[in-house]
């Protein structure tokens, strides 16, 4: 696999006559986790969709570029806010959906392995009706991880999980997605300070870099520097909202 590229999005975005954000610049360093925070409706998901080259309903003036100059969309794995699992398939079949949709033979062993890693090994043959919201999100995570692409965009992937499972899944994702270019949209300062090599705060006018804790991710939950950073970040976000 080619080394993961760095990605730069530059430009501004308007929805009808209203400017949503920009002109601004978002830079995702190669092989690192970038955590994107910002108030609801500021356009975090839109940035993800622009990088994915999906339709957004608005007007984007600018560019999305990888530093190696190659096209991006087929090198990205994506996990949306809703789990988007197919109710007529089992958990295992949902996990290998990508391969099926490309008409390839799926790697079932790898799928089973990933399902075990996300704690769903006992639920492989079940349908979604039998799963809780958190389990569904873990299945969606397994489906995103199995794609094994150099760039991974995650839109609030851990929001429906209980605190314990969330910490587990963060560790799993950090391990599996090590050395990939990751953009994680989140509302949770704790998650951002734990996982991000880079933390970006999105506002309509700019994407500000927030200094991450000095240690490299993934950071221990009880690490004092991380906790301090998290508290400062939270205070800043609260100020922003008011």
């Amino acid at each position: 696999m080619t080394p993961p590229p760095a990605i730069t999005l530059q430009g501004s975005y308007t929805l009808g006559d209203t400017r949503l954000f920009g002109p601004l610049s978002v830079h995702l360093p190669a092989g690192q986790w970038t955590c994107l925070l910002g108030p609801s409706g500021v356009g975090k998901s839109t940035i993800l969709r622009l990088i994915l080259d999906l339709s957004t309903g608005g007007q984007f003036t600018g560019s999305v570029q990888a530093d190696d100059g190659q096209p991006l969309p087929d090198r990205i794995s994506y996990m949306a806010q809703s789990d988007l699992l197919l109710p007529w398939l089992t958990v295992l079949e949902n996990t290998v959906l990508g391969a099926r949709l490309r008409g390839e033979t799926p790697d079932m062993d790898r799928a089973r392995h990933l399902l075990t890693r996300v704690g769903l090994e006992a639920h492989q043959t079940k349908t979604l009706a039998a799963l809780s919201g958190g389990m569904r999100q873990r299945a969606a995570l397994a489906r995103a991880l199995i794609e094994d692409r150099p760039v991974v965009l995650l839109d609030e992937p851990f929001s429906a999980l209980d605190a314990g499972t969330r910490a587990d899944m963060q560790e799993l994702a950090a391990e599996v997605l090590q050395d990939k270019t990751v953009l994680l949209v989140t509302h949770d300062p704790a998650e951002a300070t734990r996982l991000g090599h880079q933390i970006l705060l999105l506002s309509p006018d700019e994407a500000t870099v927030w200094a991450p804790p000095p240690t490299p991710p993934i950071r221990a939950l009880q690490d004092p520097a991380t906790l301090a950073c998290q508290a400062e970040l939270l205070a800043h976000l609260r100020g922003q909202v008011r």
């Binding site: 999906l54 197919l86 949709l101 008409g103």
Partner: peptide
Amino acid sequence: GLLDLARTMGATRWQV
């Protein structure tokens, strides 16, 4: 959302 996801996965029209 499903169609978007399929697109990011490189799905063919017929497979979708």
